[in-house]
Structures are given as C-alpha cells and as structure tokens.
Design a protein around this nucleic acid. Structure first.
Lengths: 137, 137
DNA sequence: ATGAACCCTGTAGCAACTACAGGGTCAAGT
DNA sequence: ACTTGACCCTGTAGTTGCTACAGGGTTCAT
C-alpha cells in the first residue's frame, strides 16, 4: 500500500500514531514526504522498517540496539557477528532480569506468608520491612 | 547515632545522598532540622524510616505503595488487611513480570539459535526480525 | 456549511532516580 | 593564616520510551 497516512501505518503495525512521530523525532524512522495538506505519506519501505522496529522492541531490544541492528542490516557484506552479539546481550539481560525477579518473588512471598489477619500494631509484614532482612523472627 | 549528616545516613542505609534528598522532596522522608551550616541533621528515627523505605523498594514496592505502607504503619489499631493487600498486589505484579520475561526469553533464544556465523546479507536473526513472527522459515 | 475524524507542532508528564553546575562549610595539614 | 579536599547546599536537566495534552489545521461526508 502506497501513500499511507500515519494513522493507517499505525493500524497496520499496531503502533500508536504518537509513537511513530516519536520514532521520527529520534531518527529511528525517516522524515518522509508530505502531502499538500502537510500530512506524512508513507510507503511500504517505511511500513517494513516500522515492522522490524516493533518486533525488535517486542523482543526487548532497546532503542539503541534497534538503531544498531537497523544500520548493520544495511551493510550486507559485513560479518553478522555483531548482530549476533547484540541479540545475545539482550538475551543475557533478559535472563538476568528473570533471575532478579525470581529472587524478589521468593523474598516477597516469604513476607506475605507471615500475615496473620490482625491489627497493624502486630503486622508481621510491616515488622519484616521494619528491620534488616537477615534478622530472624 | 544522633546528629548524622546526610552522607553518614546514606552510608548506613546504602542509599545515594541524592536519593535521600529526592525522598525528602517527594515527601517520603521528613524535612529535618539543619545545623548552623545548613546541613541536614538526622537521628535514629529517620534512619529507621529510611531503612524501611529501602527494604520495601528492594522488594519491588513502588513509591506510592511505600507511602501507603508508611502511613498505615502509623494507624496501629487498624486492621492490617490493607497492608496484606498491598503486599499481595506487589507479589502478583512481580509474578506477572516474570511470566512476561520468560515468554520473551523463549522467543529471543529461538531467534538467537538461528545464527550461522555468516554475512549480514544472510543473517537469520535479521530475517527473523524482518517479518511477522508467525512466518515459518 | 458544519461536524466528525483525522492530521500537525510543541511541550509537559510519567517512575525513580542520576548527574551536573555553581556555589557554601568544615576540619586537617603546612 | 591559608589552602586543600571532602563534604554539603539548591536547582535544574537528563535518563527510557513513550503518552497526553493544548491549540490549532485538513479532509470528507452529510
């Protein structure tokens, strides 16, 4: 589809209109030609590019990583090691976050288990928060 | 220890000095008395309060949740159901995040596994990003 | 011609800090 | 007395990745 307005592009990529304008502002999407009424006019190149961006973002790549992937994708003769590196860093980061959250979940559910429906004055949750974590009970 | 300067309080609670000033600005920590030289002077009450805040934050409670816990902790006669509710909401939220990240990890490691060290032009990672997720290979 | 649905720019807000800039204070050493 | 260095102060701007206006203009159908 050629000559899409921003709203159509937004619908076809499940992206908010304002996000597209934001991507343009930060240089992730190009500045495209305008119609007579000063509306942005997008073609299939831009739709593909935005699709790439969306999928990368959904997989947890940061904006700067997406930027790097997009620019690497243009240097077709280059070795793809750097692409691999970015993807693996991202995976490691996701795994690190999972581990951190699982620790959190352990500690937090230990705290929640303490609850014996009573008065605030005796609340074990508040007591658990009110002293260093390694104090025994 | 009484009459601590902000730096001592920071060290003793493993908090950045600027974070303490920030907590004061948003009303999570009180405005304390100043020395002659206009330095903040903290006592053990404030140290305890900041310790509580730090532990709650480390357990993933948001600033507003911490604010609520602190104010509930003062109403000693109140039933502690609300405390329990806040803690359980937080736990659910943490569990939700873990699940989302685990999905991400699955998809991302599927993408990373595709890599056959070659040229960017044939890069499977980039190909995986360059098309809708449900296209087969 | 008027209303709804769309588009435009520009700025401010979110969470929870962090990082300056541009100063003042205090204790120790020379 | 003076200087050095470590600390403190306020206030503002930056971070990430958008989202939400405010205050307009355009397009198209009725």
């Amino acid at each position: 589809m050629i000559g899409m307005k921003i709203g159509e592009l937004a619908r076809s990529t499940r992206t908010a209109v304002e996000t597209i304008r934001y991507y343009e502002k930060i240089g992730l999407m190009p500045q495209v030609a305008r119609t007579e009424g000063n509306y942005r006019s997008y073609g299939s190149n831009e739709a593909e590019r935005l699709g790439f961006i969306r999928r990368a973002r959904d997989l947890g790549f940061g904006i700067d990583q997406v930027r790097a992937l997009l620019s690497l994708a243009d240097e077709r003769d280059r070795d793809c090691g750097e692409v691999d590196f970015i993807a693996k860093s991202n995976l490691l980061e996701v795994e690190r976050k999972i581990a951190a959250l699982q620790n959190l979940q352990q500690e937090l559910s230990a705290v929640v288990r303490q609850c014996r429906a009573g008065k605030v004055a005796d609340c074990r949750i508040l007591k658990a928060l009110g002293r260093p974590a390694d104090w025994a009970d």
